[in-house]
Design a protein around this nucleic acid. Structure first.
Length: 219
DNA sequence: GAGGAGATCGTCT
DNA sequence: GACGATCTCCTCT
C-alpha cells in the first residue's frame, strides 16, 4: 500500500481564489472508495476557472441548472458531460453564492491501478515504470481520469469532497511538490492567454502536447 | 512522431 | 440548431 496516511482537505482549503486552490491541489490525492477497494491518484495538473470576468468559465454567463454547483459552497464536485462522450471533474471554490472552480486535468495513479486499467479498457504492464505508455494513458487527461475513477455526472455531481463519509475525497499525505509551472490553459477558445493552468514540472502524467508537458515554454 | 478530423449528446440560445 | 474545459484513430512524414 503506497498511501501510508492521509488527511482530508477542509472546506476552508477551497474557500479561496481558484488560482490558489489550483496550485495548492498539486501533489494532493483524489480518492475514490468503492466496494472493490480504494482508488487514489496524485494530482499533477489543474486549471483554474474564475466565476466572473473569465470568459472561458462555464459560470461566466450566469447560473444554470448545469453549472449550479459552481455557485454553491466550496469543496463540492461539479461534473459535466462534453463532446457526447466524456465527463470532466471540477471542485467548487469560493463561498456559497460566488462562482469559481478548478478542473482536474491529470493524475498520477497511486492505488488501484488494476481497477483503473479495467475501467479504461487498457492492459497495463510494468506499473513500476512511470514512463510506461499504457500507464500514462490511464489518467492523463480530464476525460481519462473520470473514466478511470468511474466518475459520472449522474453519480458524482454535487458530491462533497471534504467528508469522511463521502466516497469521493481530496486529501493530503505530506507529499512535497517540486517545481510548479503555470501556463496558458489548453483546448479552450476563450481567454486562452490567462496562465491559469498549473502542472508539476517534469511529471510524466501531465496531459496535452508534449512541448507543454514539462512546462518548457522556450525559456 | 505529428497533425487532423470524426464521434456523439447534453446544454443553452 | 450549434457548439463544446476531449479522446482516439487514421494518415502522412
Amino acid at each position: 500500500m503506497m498511501v501510508v496516511s492521509s488527511t482530508l482537505l477542509t472546506p476552508a482549503f477551497f474557500n479561496r481564489d481558484p488560482r490558489k486552490v489550483a496550485r495548492g491541489l498539486l501533489g494532493k490525492l483524489l480518492v475514490r472508495k468503492t466496494r472493490q477497494g480504494t482508488l487514489a491518484g496524485r494530482i499533477v495538473e489543474t486549471e483554474a476557472y474564475l466565476g466572473t470576468g473569465d470568459e472561458a468559465a462555464h459560470s461566466f454567463a450566469g447560473k444554470t441548472a448545469r453549472n449550479s454547483v459552481l455557485f454553491g459552497p466550496p469543496g463540492f464536485a461539479y461534473v459535466y458531460f462534453i463532446y457526447g462522450t466524456h465527463y470532466c471533474l471540477n471542485v467548487s471554490c469560493l463561498p456559497d453564492g460566488v462562482a469559481g472552480g478548478v478542473l482536474f486535468r491529470a493524475l498520477e495513479p497511486v492505488t488501484g491501478i488494476e481497477k483503473m486499467a479495467e475501467a479504461r479498457g487498457i492492459e497495463v504492464r510494468g506499473t513500476e515504470d512511470l514512463n510506461n505508455r499504457s500507464l500514462r494513458q490511464l489518467t492523463s487527461g480530464p476525460g481519462r481520469l473520470c473514466e478511470a475513477f468511474g466518475i459520472t455526472r449522474e453519480r458524482d455531481n454535487d458530491k462533497i469532497f471534504t467528508s469522511a463519509r463521502s466516497d469521493l475525497q481530496l486529501a493530503r499525505d505530506g507529499f512535497r511538490v517540486g517545481q510548479v509551472v503555470a501556463g496558458p490553459r489548453i483546448r479552450i477558445k476563450k481567454s486562452v492567454e490567462q496562465p491559469y493552468r498549473y502542472v508539476i514540472r517534469g511529471n510524466p502524467f501531465v496531459s496535452g502536447p508534449k512541448l507543454l508537458q514539462d512546462g518548457n515554454r522556450g525559456a
